[in-house]
Structures are given as C-alpha cells and as structure tokens.
Design a protein around this nucleic acid. Structure first.
Lengths: 185, 185
DNA sequence: GTCTATACTCGGATAGAC
DNA sequence: GTCTATCCGAGTATAGAC
C-alpha cells in the first residue's frame, strides 16, 4: 500500500474533497490532508502549487460535465416541454455524482469565488438559467423559470422539509414543483 | 483621534461587518479591522474574546429582529392571505437593514455554522418555513409554500436576472412570484 | 476600564537535499 | 516524488502602561 506513487495527485483530490466537504474549505488544513495520505505537508506542493489549486482541479471536472449539458440545452427550443427535459437532466446531474459537490459549492461560496473554476461554474449556471428564460416574456414569468433550477437544488437540502420524506421522494417533489414553474402552471 | 473612547465595541462590529461582507469572513484579518479603527490588533481582544465573537454579536442583533417576526407569524392563521402578509413582512425585513447581512449569511455559511447565533438564525428560518407550511397538505404544496421564502431571498441576488431591472422592480417581481406560490396560483 | 508591547502557535508556502 | 528546514502571516494570550 505504501509503494504507489503515480496516482497520488488523484488521491489528494479525493481525500481533500472529502475533508473540505466535512469541515469546510477554510477549516481544513493541509496537515490533515497530508496525514490521511500518510505523506508530509510540503509533499502536497509537488502536485499542487497551492491549496486553492486542489479545489480548482475538482471543480474543473464538474465544469466539464456542465459543459456537455449546457451545449445540449442551448440547442433546445423555448417550449415548456423542452424546459422540463432540461430540468430533468439537471436533476440527473445532481443525482449522479455531483450532488455533494453542489452542496459544497453552496456552503463554501467565498472559496468558490476566489478560484477560476468557481467563476467558470457560475458562468455555466447563469447560461443554464438564461436558456430556461423565455426571451421577451414578462419579468414574473422569467423569474419563475429561473426559480425552477433553484427548486431542484434546494430539493437536495434535507432541512427544507421537516416532513419525514425519503430522499428520492424529496427530489421527485422538487422536480414536480420545478416542472410546474417552467410550465406556467 | 488618538484618545480612548467608549463606543469602540460597536465600532468594531460595524467595521468588521463591512469588511466581512466585502472580502468574506475567513479572508478578513483582524489586522485589517484594527487598522481601520486605528487601534492595535490585541486591543480587539479586550472587547471580544475571539474573532468569531465579533460575528456572533452582529448575528444576535439580527436574531432579535427575527424573533419579533416569528412570534407574530406563529399567531397567524393558515390562510393564503395571511401567508402573503407574512411574506410581505419578510420582504420588509430584507429591505430595511438586514439585506446585506442575509447576503453575508448565504455566502459565508461555513462561518455561520460555527457560531451559536448562526445556529439560532437557522432555527428561526426553519420556524418561519414551518409557519408557512399547511399541515397535512401534500408534499408538492408544502414545498411550494416553503420555496416562496427562497424566492424572496433569491430576488435580492442581482445575477438571477440578466435582464436590466432596477432593484425595486426585482424585489417586486420576487414578491409576486412568492405570493403566487403560497396562493397555489 | 481601555489599550500597547511582546510573544506563542499553527497553517500556508518555498528552497533545497535525498 | 518526498523529505527537512525555514519563513511569514494570522489568531490568540498575557503583562503591564495609562
């Protein structure tokens, strides 16, 4: 177990993201990351030139996933049905593997704002919002369409429901509400 | 300007909140706070026993405001009209003086989670959400009612609209959407 | 009661040896 | 690719001046 050396970079990202999510980005010390990997603190600096670079790398992977989605979404027409389908794919993305990372981004906004990939993620989300927005519609309509995305994201937060609802039913409920919002009821 | 003063504690809170909001809580150093006040760094420790205590004091003031609102809201009936009125008061609170603080709390969630007053604020917000929730209603209905509060909060974020809309029209739009959500359209 | 000087510890970062 | 040694800056503690 102690002889591997080529996958260290990736292992750093995994462990770091785990700790960043648990304790928050700023509260996590590189000492803790190094200890879990059983290397020393300066050794991390061979693979990443700064703490922020570790986080940046992880978010870049997320952005690549978002890029596919955004590209596809831009090609869709401005119909309610197409918008529901876009929301469905956003929900899938949250489901698949990125949910913890979305939650992290939400809780650690100050860190996200300081890294390039964080800016990139925000740009992609804004693009997604604008794809869902009917051009020329009145502001209330546009706001409802945009709110739909946040309904999906908020649906992943347990505290939004005190009600005892299993997770899959929570996300289903959020999707229903989001679909209503883009459909204009 | 170099003499001793008696309002230092309050001035610390004001300046600190300003800087915390600009650069984020963790990125703000006590050195910067002290410099703006033209005192030394250790002097801060006479008034507050830790950096987190400065933030905690500010949030306690907000919680006191929230308490009034929560107490009043609990006494309201579960009618759509009453819920719209509750949302109106939440919007007023955001308007009045607490908007920057709400924004701060959103962006600096990790810091908020570590201070007692942050927990207190979250409890109060959850109470507000539950007051807006019709007991026994189906989950979709309940989620819509809760989402209304977030519509108000999100309405304060400029980036949610690319559209060129002045701030007062943004908040008005958010209020309209929120009202629709609790009214079940 | 209000503040300054000083010092300690820990975390991020760099240089250079193996 | 990883280590030791070292630096710097930030939060914190304490002694003591006024």
């Amino acid at each position: 177990m102690a002889g591997r050396r080529t996958d260290t970079r990736q292992r750093i990202q995994e462990i770091a993201l785990e700790l960043f999510s648990e304790r928050g980005y700023e509260q996590t010390t590189l000492q803790e990351v190094a200890e879990r990997l059983e290397i020393t603190r300066p050794a991390l600096y061979y693979h990443f030139k700064a703490k922020e670079d570790i986080l940046n790398g992880v978010i870049e992977d997320l952005n690549a996933s978002l890029d596919e989605l955004v590209e596809w979404a831009r090609a869709q027409p401005h119909t309610a049905a197409a918008k529901r389908e876009i929301l469905g794919r956003i929900a899938d993305l949250l489901e698949d593997r990125w949910r913890p990372l979305f939650r992290f981004a939400q809780v650690n906004q100050t860190a996200m704002e300081r890294i390039p990939a964080g800016e990139g993620m925000q740009e992609r989300l804004i693009t997604l919002l604008s794809v869902l927005t009917t051009p020329g519609a009145d502001p209330v309509r546009q706001f409802e369409e945009r709110l739909a995305v946040f309904a999906l994201i908020l649906g992943t937060l347990p505290f939004l429901f005190e009600m005892e609802l299993p997770e899959d039913q929570r996300t289903a409920t959020a999707m229903t509400v989001a679909a209503k919002l883009v459909s204009g009821q």
